[in-house]
Amino acid sequence: MRDLATAWRAAAQGAGATADDHTVDAEGSALLARWAEPHRRYHTLEHLATLLAIIDEEADRADHPDLVRLAAWFHDAVYDPRTPGDGNERASAELALDALVTLGVPTDAIDTVRRLVLLTAGHAAPAGDRDGSLLCDADLAVLASPPAAYDAYAAAVREEYEFVPEAEFRAGRAAILRRLLELPALYRNPDLAERWTEPARANIIRELGALDR
């Protein structure tokens, strides 16, 4: 796995953080601890590293790639599967506010990061929002994985919701997948959409078939 501590420092400084290195590193360590919480099975350090790698690879698609990177760091920083609705995203956005103020990141950059984090609740980036489109596309890239990798992702999500009875989980998961299929577009960036839409839809439809059995 990539050196996430170094990646965090670079993103924070690229976004204009004025705090000293010790403070920046302390905030990064606190985030890494959150991403390593034992109840996580999919929303893990590996998921974070994958998102950051995609954002790095596709950085020219964003207007403010370092802010997209910071949003990736925070978007699932608060993650409790028992929290209803968009509670995790809202708590993550508030965590971003507190941390980035501590780091001395400019206010307009903080506002952008918070907005991007909240976008991941529904993955419906507005037209023309290059930063939001890249973050949401990267977060949904797992849907376009090869079938075996997709099945591992789906199994990990089920493990995170092990406290939910099977019938209830199947109904809830199916509703989420159907909402994804109903989005105007799964992916906003045309090049990524061309590469990822077909395999993603195939995976979702295949999982829905399994859930409905």
Rank of each mutant, 00 (worst) to 15 (best):
R2P: 10
T6E: 07
T6M: 12
W8L: 01
A12H: 07
A15R: 09
A15V: 01
T18L: 11
H22D: 15
S29T: 05
A30M: 02
R34H: 07
R40D: 01
L45S: 06
L45D: 09
E46L: 08
A53C: 08
D56E: 08
R61G: 02
A62P: 06
H64M: 05
L67G: 02
F74M: 07
R82Y: 02
A91P: 06
S92N: 00
A93V: 08
L95R: 00
A96G: 07
A96I: 04
D98I: 13
T102Y: 08
L103M: 02
V105D: 02
V105Y: 04
V105C: 02
D108H: 00
D111T: 03
V113W: 04
R114W: 11
R115D: 05
L116D: 13
A121G: 12
G128N: 10
L135D: 09
L143W: 13
L143Q: 05
Y150W: 08
A152N: 08
A154R: 09
A155I: 06
A156M: 08
V157F: 02
E159R: 13
E160L: 08
Y161D: 10
E162C: 15
E162K: 15
E166A: 05
A167S: 14
F169S: 07
L177Q: 06
L177E: 14
P184S: 07
P184V: 10
N189H: 14
P190A: 14
A193L: 00
T197E: 04
A200E: 12
N203K: 12
N203G: 05
N203E: 00
R206P: 01
A210I: 15
